[in-house]
Design a protein around this nucleic acid. Sequence first.
DNA 1: TCTTTACACTCTAGGCCTAATATGTAAATA
DNA 2: TATTTACATATTAGGCCTAGAGTGTAAAGA
Lengths: 201, 201
Amino acid sequence: MSGKGAKQTSALADTRRRALLDAALTVFSRYGYKKTSMDEVARSAQLSRQGLYLHFATKEELFQAAVRNALENSSGAAVAALTSASLPLDQRLVRAFDEWLGRYIGIMGGDASDLIEATSRLSGTMLTQYEEMFSDAVTKAIRSSRFLAASKSSGITARQITNTLLATARGLKHSSKSREQFVRGFAVAVKLLCNPIREHS
Amino acid sequence: MSGKGAKQTSALADTRRRALLDAALTVFSRYGYKKTSMDEVARSAQLSRQGLYLHFATKEELFQAAVRNALENSSGAAVAALTSASLPLDQRLVRAFDEWLGRYIGIMGGDASDLIEATSRLSGTMLTQYEEMFSDAVTKAIRSSRFLAASKSSGITARQITNTLLATARGLKHSSKSREQFVRGFAVAVKLLCNPIREHS
DNA sequence: TCTTTACACTCTAGGCCTAATATGTAAATA
DNA sequence: TATTTACATATTAGGCCTAGAGTGTAAAGA
């Protein structure tokens, strides 16, 4: 049983569900919550409107599931990137933040406030929870590397480094027009922060 | 002659003008451009509405002058902080970014889009020009210090460091609830970036 | 001369209504 | 069983109008 509800879900249905949620997220991101119609989402997913209602009883439920799906995808890919031990820390960090934030650059239409309002109303603390999960994973990755040792003399904690990276990534997300630009900018930031390692190794 | 127009302006009138512009900026920031009335600005500056019209012919002119005044104050204080040679680079950077961005934390009301629209419509490229000026000053300050030498082996330019600092500051501005929190967070960021100096000095 | 009071003009805010669109449900179909 | 067509309800968009507030100008006062 791969689903999470009481309803039996096949692997195929699960795949379809994810495709619907991905399509929904795209449409919601582009037009905002209110201006997005179920019909638009259905069309975008090659489906009739009522076929969509078979999967999600209400628009609110669809939105909530789409947000959860996106957060699950992002945080999953980000944590996976962070814990792939074969790569050096700086590359893992760049990939993780790209999955967490970079992938959402340039897909959002003008009405950001509507999306924010809907998210905070319908998804409650979900966003915060995933943020903390991601934040913890980054902190852990930093602690597990030799990176921290170099900064220890300055009295800077791994958590502080994480917060700085988060702030930099958020700032870059706003000023970057493309995902590639974001990655390039963040790679520079990580390189700067990782200098102590290389200098001491 | 301290003014910039053809009209003769005394030092006193200039001081008054600045007080008006400061008051205007506060009101505009809190309520946005459209929702702000000339009456509100005048009251906030202890003045009648028509007294205000003697100084600024239209609301648009007032807004433009207020934005210019704010940018002038911020960039002036920031550049002054950057070039006060007595302090180490990290402290100068923290003060400069605090003047440039930190001072505007928490003074803005909910309608940011209105302010952004008005600024880009009425102030044209003014904001970009001051941003470049500040950016250049930061880059210059970094170049003039021993900071860059430590990073030279990594192939990172002073301009890239500046961009990283700018991104971090913008991200912190969004996530910080108070100016003090912003300064603390940015101090950590600068400390991290300045580690190479201390390690090598 | 600088500031305030008084006045015409403009514009936005809100109520109301209609048309249209969107949501959610039930029956029909492959 | 999974999907589509048909339908009732709810919500929103736009037009129109009035009331009120806001802008900019001209005359009066300190």
